[in-house]
Simulated assay, not measured.
Amino acid sequence: MIEAAKIWNEPNNKSHWDPNLDPEWDLFANMTRLAGQAIAAENGGLTRVLGGMSPIDPHFLKRLEARGVMDHVDVVAVHGFPLDWNLWQIDEWPAKVDEIAAVTDKPVWITEVGVSSFGSEEVQAWGVTKTAELLVGKVPTIHWYSLYDLPKTWEATTRHKEAEGSSYYRHFHMGLLREDGSPKPSLEAYAPHAADMGLCQWFHFEDHRLDEAVAWMKRLGVRKLRTGLSWADSFRPDADRWFDRQMEALADFDVTVTFCFTPEHRGIEPHHTSPPQVAEEFAEFCASMVRRYAPATAGRAAFAAE
């Protein structure tokens, strides 16, 4: 059910990891080593992916390598949004991949790439086509972010929220589908590339879009999907029931599942970006999710027999 397990999301982005609490990423490195070991102990054949860098930074990767992280992951992931948040042009994508490939012998995946329709839906559609032209065949795995726009009543996962100005509101317009489920021009642009350029779609706890998303992805011919299972959500009532429902619905796709988000009561500070008080607890969460949804033994995931 899971083809890869991704350890955290954008660890060099303050919206996902607090550098004030871990300025040298020593705590992150220790947590990642432990999680990588725990995943391998449950299923040695499962690909372990380092949380996607954003910004793309070979110096950050070398920092983690010096702390032993690379011995416990199989793939390096990067994220890029050159038309929205990055300080480089879209044509630089191949060079950005080469920068990372030059400092590691691990495969490089692009687990988030996207273009917001905040300014123009036509520009987003052009961005889909241009991204496919630049990256399909350049890396083995690409996930376009995302299928759906973020509902305006929800919050985007950023550190400073509305204080970021237009940068914040771009988060709400990354989908190929509008919030109401109607297609944008970018959906038509994406369709010819669906088999080669997968999707990244985060599903919130008890997300009402799940079944419709699955129907759209099957209609488009999507094969690869990246999503997440939240450590913080695991403490909600009936968390396993929701996780089971989500993973069962996604069973027909090659899923890269991201394990991330610190529960407030288990962080050094009460925030999802905080390093955990006890890194082994995150590692055990990763192990428990692999046991449940990607067991080493053949056959259906363990939850299906419960």
Rank of each mutant, 00 (worst) to 15 (best):
M1P: 06
I2V: 15
K6P: 00
I7E: 07
W8C: 08
L21R: 01
E24L: 12
L27D: 11
A29L: 10
A38W: 08
G45T: 03
L46P: 03
R48L: 10
L50N: 00
M53H: 01
I56R: 05
V69R: 02
M70Q: 12
M70C: 09
D71A: 13
D74N: 04
L83V: 08
N86G: 02
W93E: 11
P94W: 12
A95K: 07
D98C: 03
I100P: 01
T104V: 04
P107H: 08
V108P: 02
S117E: 05
F118M: 03
E121W: 00
E121H: 02
Q124P: 06
A125C: 06
W126T: 05
T129C: 04
L135Y: 09
P140N: 03
P140I: 11
W144A: 03
Y148N: 09
D149H: 01
T158L: 10
T158K: 03
S166Q: 14
H173N: 12
H173T: 15
M174N: 05
L177K: 01
Y190W: 10
A194E: 11
A194Y: 08
D196G: 04
L199T: 01
V214T: 04
G221F: 12
V222F: 13
T227N: 04
A232Y: 08
R236L: 14
W242Q: 00
F243D: 09
F243N: 02
E248C: 06
A251D: 13
V255R: 01
F259E: 08
E264R: 06
E269V: 10
P275A: 06
E280D: 10
E281Q: 02
C286T: 01
R292L: 13
R300I: 10
